[in-house]
């Protein structure tokens, strides 16, 4: 356990972007809140304050999460390749740390540590922005932007999102690690070419699109962890002029735990992910240097 903590700390030393990118995003958002034009920030009175608060907090969180997804993909693709490229793998392998431990430390950093860091950054940014805007635009705006119960519900959503995406994207992360442990150069090409080759081969020889379908389902199918349309009873509908705004009653109605867990795709993905991570560990054992 102690070794795992050191391994994750090592990732922070090597990849300072882990905390620098969210710091920069948060910094820009706070600067915008400080110096931005708040004249336009008049919330029409008929807007439900709850919906506005939700949209504000969710928008901050989603922005961070979107950037995190891109960085995490790049991180997992690079992590086992970088130290083979600069040959420092020979130093890391001189220490009594198993290859399984090393690979799992990178996986945990990419799938758990990174999202946690980004969501902490999102929370801090939300707090500071809400504070600044309430000082600049008045306490009514502040009361709309900062709603403690909403904030707590969003934390539940973020934790669920981290766990659900970690499970759902485990095979993707596993594949990234395999490429990272395998490639002798051009990780990007190794990432993209094998799936494309499979797609084309299937299309030419069989004329079907099963792989493409499966791939698309894996990349976008995480939606099944959520009730995108939770049903009439779970929405609050507000009429604004001629339009309506619908927001979930609470976070619980938005989570679809049973749907996620009962989907066969979830468990197939988990199994494939574990198998790919096993492959990455084996490759890490055998492919020390480039």
């Amino acid at each position: 356990m102690n070794t795992m903590v050191w391994l994750v700390r090592r990732e922070f030393w090597e990849n300072r972007a882990i905390w620098m990118i969210p710091a920069v995003i948060g910094g820009f958002m706070i600067l915008a809140a400080l110096f931005g034009n708040i004249e336009q920030l008049t919330i029409p009175s008929q807007f439900p304050s709850r919906a506005v608060g939700e949209i504000f907090m969710a928008a901050v969180g989603v922005t961070f999460f979107a950037v995190m997804t891109i960085y995490s993909t790049w991180y997992l693709l690079e992590c086992l390749y970088a130290d083979r490229k600069d040959r420092s793998v020979l130093f890391w392998k001189s220490l009594p740390i198993s290859d399984a431990m090393t690979v799992i430390s990178k996986l945990a950093t990419g799938l758990i540590v990174l999202p946690v860091v980004y969501f902490i950054a999102a929370d801090v940014t939300t707090l500071i922005m809400a504070f600044i805007l309430s000082v600049r635009a008045g306490s009514t705006v502040g009361a709309v932007l900062w709603q403690a119960d909403l904030w707590l519900q969003l934390q539940v959503l973020w934790v669920y999102l981290i766990v659900a995406t970690a499970v759902w994207y485990l095979p993707v992360a596993g594949y990234l690690l395999v490429v990272s442990a395998w490639a002798k150069r051009a990780v990007m090409l190794w990432l993209i070419l094998p799936p494309i080759a499979l797609l084309l081969a299937e299309k030419w020889f069989l004329g079907t699109h099963v792989i493409a379908g499966q791939l698309g389902e894996r990349l976008w199918g995480v939606g099944k962890a959520f009730n995108v349309d939770p049903g009439e009873g779970s929405w609050v509908t507000t009429a604004v002029d001629n339009n309506t705004i619908r927001t979930p009653v609470d976070v619980w109605s938005f989570l679809n735990v049973s749907g996620f867990l009962s989907s066969l795709d979830t468990w197939i993905g988990l199994a494939v992910g574990i198998a790919l991570i096993g492959c990455a560990i084996q490759l890490r054992m055998r492919r020390a240097e480039i």
């Binding site: 090597e14 130290d83 420092s88 220490l95």
Partner: peptide, 19 residues
């Protein structure tokens, strides 16, 4: 083969932590 980004004191901390 020590990685370019590693600081001397971190290197000592790390090896002390895992070895």
């Amino acid at each position: 083969v020590l990685p370019a980004w590693l600081r001397v004191d971190h290197a000592i901390d790390f090896v002390a932590g895992v070895h």
